[in-house]
Amino acid sequence: MNLSADIARCDGVQYDGEFREGCDDCLRRTAQRGDRAVMIEPPALVVFECEMRVEGNTEVKPTREAGSA
């Protein structure tokens, strides 16, 4: 599955060679990236689930931030 080019990507977090729970199949990490992909840092602390995670079966539509034209 692919994400729109305006959805930020993430490299995920690995500990001892294994991805943190949720990073292994997150589309922010696994979807194809263009040459100029916008990157985000993964959250330093995840309590239950990463708030930035995009599941493979989720349709993601870009949204405008408040105040943008």
Rank of each mutant, 00 (worst) to 15 (best):
residue 27 L to D: 00
residue 5 A to M: 06
residue 34 G to T: 13
residue 48 F to E: 14
residue 27 L to T: 01
residue 34 G to E: 04
residue 13 V to W: 01
residue 2 N to H: 08
residue 54 V to N: 00
residue 61 K to V: 15
residue 38 V to A: 11
residue 30 T to F: 00
residue 64 R to Y: 05
residue 60 V to S: 01
residue 38 V to N: 05
residue 41 E to L: 11
residue 53 R to N: 06
residue 5 A to S: 13
residue 24 D to V: 14
residue 60 V to C: 04
residue 37 A to V: 06
residue 31 A to P: 06
residue 65 E to R: 13
residue 5 A to W: 00
residue 45 L to H: 09
residue 69 A to Q: 11
residue 4 S to H: 15
residue 17 G to E: 06
residue 24 D to N: 10
residue 7 I to G: 01
residue 1 M to I: 15
residue 10 C to E: 03
residue 9 R to K: 12
residue 20 R to D: 09
residue 4 S to I: 08
residue 19 F to M: 05
residue 15 Y to T: 15
residue 5 A to I: 09
residue 36 R to T: 15
residue 12 G to R: 02
residue 16 D to Y: 07
residue 17 G to A: 05
residue 32 Q to K: 10
residue 22 G to H: 03
residue 25 D to K: 12
residue 38 V to W: 00
residue 29 R to K: 15
residue 5 A to H: 03
residue 65 E to N: 12
residue 66 A to Y: 05
residue 15 Y to N: 12
residue 22 G to I: 09
residue 7 I to H: 00
residue 38 V to D: 08
residue 15 Y to Q: 13
residue 46 V to L: 03
residue 68 S to C: 13
residue 58 T to Q: 14
residue 66 A to H: 04
residue 8 A to D: 10
residue 59 E to T: 15
residue 4 S to C: 13
residue 64 R to G: 10
residue 7 I to K: 00
residue 33 R to W: 00
residue 64 R to Q: 12
residue 28 R to Y: 02
residue 5 A to Y: 01
residue 67 G to K: 08
residue 47 V to Y: 02
residue 42 P to R: 03
residue 47 V to R: 08
residue 34 G to C: 06
residue 32 Q to S: 14
residue 25 D to Y: 02
residue 14 Q to W: 01
residue 48 F to H: 10
residue 19 F to D: 07
residue 24 D to H: 08
residue 45 L to F: 09
residue 68 S to R: 11
residue 57 N to F: 09
residue 61 K to R: 14
residue 25 D to C: 08
residue 21 E to H: 10
residue 35 D to E: 14
residue 66 A to T: 14
residue 5 A to L: 09
residue 9 R to C: 07
residue 48 F to W: 04
residue 65 E to T: 13
residue 58 T to H: 06
residue 19 F to E: 03
residue 42 P to F: 01
residue 24 D to G: 13
residue 15 Y to W: 05
residue 62 P to L: 07
residue 23 C to Y: 00
residue 53 R to W: 05
residue 65 E to F: 07
residue 25 D to P: 04
residue 42 P to G: 08
residue 52 M to T: 15
residue 44 A to H: 08
residue 59 E to A: 09
residue 32 Q to P: 13
residue 16 D to I: 10
residue 18 E to V: 15
residue 37 A to M: 05
residue 4 S to W: 03
residue 40 I to L: 14
residue 36 R to I: 11
residue 38 V to G: 02
residue 17 G to K: 04
residue 34 G to D: 12
residue 3 L to M: 05
residue 18 E to W: 02
residue 2 N to G: 07
residue 29 R to C: 07
residue 8 A to L: 03
residue 37 A to L: 04
residue 35 D to S: 09
residue 44 A to I: 11
residue 4 S to R: 07
residue 41 E to A: 14
residue 61 K to S: 10
residue 13 V to S: 01
residue 46 V to Y: 00
residue 67 G to F: 04
residue 23 C to L: 06
residue 47 V to A: 04
residue 44 A to S: 13
residue 67 G to Y: 04
residue 30 T to I: 15
residue 68 S to A: 11
residue 36 R to L: 10
residue 64 R to K: 13
residue 66 A to L: 13
